[in-house]
Design a protein around this nucleic acid. Sequence first.
DNA 1: GCTTCAAACAATAATCATTCTAATTTAAAA
DNA 2: TTTTAAATTAGAATGATTATTGTTTGAAGC
Lengths: 142, 142
Amino acid sequence: MKTVQEIAKNIQTAGLKVTPQRVAVVQALDKLNHPGAEDIYKEVSHQIPGLSPATVYNILEALVSKELIKKVPTETGIMKYDAVSEHHHHIYCKQSNRMDDYFDPELDNLLQDYFQRKKIKGFEIREMKLHLLGAYRNKKKE
Amino acid sequence: MKTVQEIAKNIQTAGLKVTPQRVAVVQALDKLNHPGAEDIYKEVSHQIPGLSPATVYNILEALVSKELIKKVPTETGIMKYDAVSEHHHHIYCKQSNRMDDYFDPELDNLLQDYFQRKKIKGFEIREMKLHLLGAYRNKKKE
DNA sequence: GCTTCAAACAATAATCATTCTAATTTAAAA
DNA sequence: TTTTAAATTAGAATGATTATTGTTTGAAGC
């Protein structure tokens, strides 16, 4: 869990002004699991009455463009946001519509090596994202 | 390129009625590269005047539910459709917004083996889709 | 601490892909 | 040919997202 100071620092370092709305949005992102803009709006509205949904979208777009967070397209067409900006993969359960981050350096090496060997003609790979679709065996708590 | 007969057969075998609209939509899917519903509507309207956009959405949904085609969420949030229903991965160029299918049984085996060894606790993998993000080196023609 | 001003925010209208509704038409089984 | 559930159509409705415009504010410089 990031502190307010850390969050403010990150925002500032990215060249953005530190506002209560932005700090609160990052806190919500940190707290919620792959929330949509709507989820974030609901969460942050409590702290910041009078918050505009448009502001949430603006903030998210700003954070994405500065690569502080990631925007993730989903099966439903609604965009979700990911507090983690470092490279990782995703686990996705279609039934529950739940998404989880999946970090795996060993897998990354495997893929790196594989595509070092096996080039794709005319295409330069910049990033490899694996989507693991399936189902949770046991209940998972939020 | 599938024949009308083949397409009709596929539609019928899936338990759907064979209509001119459906055949034309499948033909368009076959011809275009990962089109959106809008693209398909524009293409098919020529052949079938009076076609309704809603019909295109209905047909696509029906084909997806029968697993004759695939629905692919994209970075922009608009859904694209894939004539290929067999398992495969995707190459995606952010600049041109172009998407291509990527078949690689060797990679599939590699991933299968890897996750046979390395289980993810509490999650049962049903499908693994790799997204290769990057850029085309040379112009690619449609 | 005060001024300044570009950046950020709020309110609200607009957009646009997609879904829904209700009436009509049609594929195909009997 | 008749029948009927399924498919199509037109158009309204939805809902996430974006655009617009006026107001407010963070923070840099005095």
